[in-house]
Nucleic acid binder design. Structure first.
Lengths: 132, 132
DNA sequence: CTTATTGCAAAACGTTTGCAGGTTT
DNA sequence: AAACCTGCAAACGTTTTGCAATAAG
């Protein structure tokens, strides 16, 4: 893989925008530092960075892909109220338990819990209490 | 929700094609019993069935959505060799452990392990042994 | 009679790709 | 010089939508 200004910028943005940005968000912020950058290039570079194992792809059902600079396997909580995506630690024991001794070979893991983040859970609880 | 022949057929197909069919697969097999059926109607009905909680949507990264008649939360193993999707039991303890006491509110759970199913894992192991 | 549902076709969406020209090594 | 990488625009595959017509209650 050859050096390119655009790829380096994309990688930097995935690391800086650490709240799991989408390709579109990466494109918008990178465009300021590299006028003329194209969205296709952002997609191409994200793909090669994922393939090279320097970035992880985070798939959330019904949403555009997001990208993550945290490399070890972990899960995500997607908040349906504020749209935030937060990390969930996931040890390899958790996966081993899920497999329950099956002779399968796992190379990757995509776990997304859907619901309310701590902030939104607290706020909706408060609102419900106020109504009563 | 009103009765409709098309919706009933879609539900029946999700149950019959129990290997997690895509909308396209449901459409193709349902078309034989209901000529003139349209793909848009299949999508619309799958969405209302999911919303009504009668069917579950299974999202696998980079693939069209699949549909599942098994309602309780569970995970999936997607085999990159043969394309099969198999269920993985997942008890609520597993999720509780992941959340590690966080005060969040989880309404749904999407877990996909990517790798090789038992059959393909065995075959690739055998092929590797034969090469040696 | 009212309103949900349909088939159809067009559009939306996120993403990929072909190409001609520019960069990196 | 040989790859690789880029911007652009067109195409892709999946899914949604607007519409006028049909079917259900």
């Amino acid at each position: 893989m050859r050096y390119s200004k655009q790829r380096e910028l994309v990688l930097q943005k995935v690391r800086a925008l650490c709240d799991h940005p989408t390709a579109e968000e990466i494109y918008r912020t990178a465009l300021r530092e590299c006028p003329g950058l194209s969205l296709g290039t952002v997609y191409r570079n994200l793909n090669s960075l994922v393939e090279a194992g320097r970035v992880r792809r985070v798939s959330i059902p019904g949403q555009p892909d997001r990208f993550d600079h945290t490399l070890p396997w972990h899960g995500h909580l997607y908040c349906t109220r504020c749209g935030s995506v937060t990390d969930l630690a996931m040890d390899s024991d958790a996966i081993r338990r899920l497999l329950a001794g099956r002779r399968v070979q796992v190379t990757d893991c995509a776990l997304t819990l859907i619901g309310l983040c701590e902030g939104c859970a607290a706020e909706t609880a408060a609102a419900a209490a106020a109504t009563v």
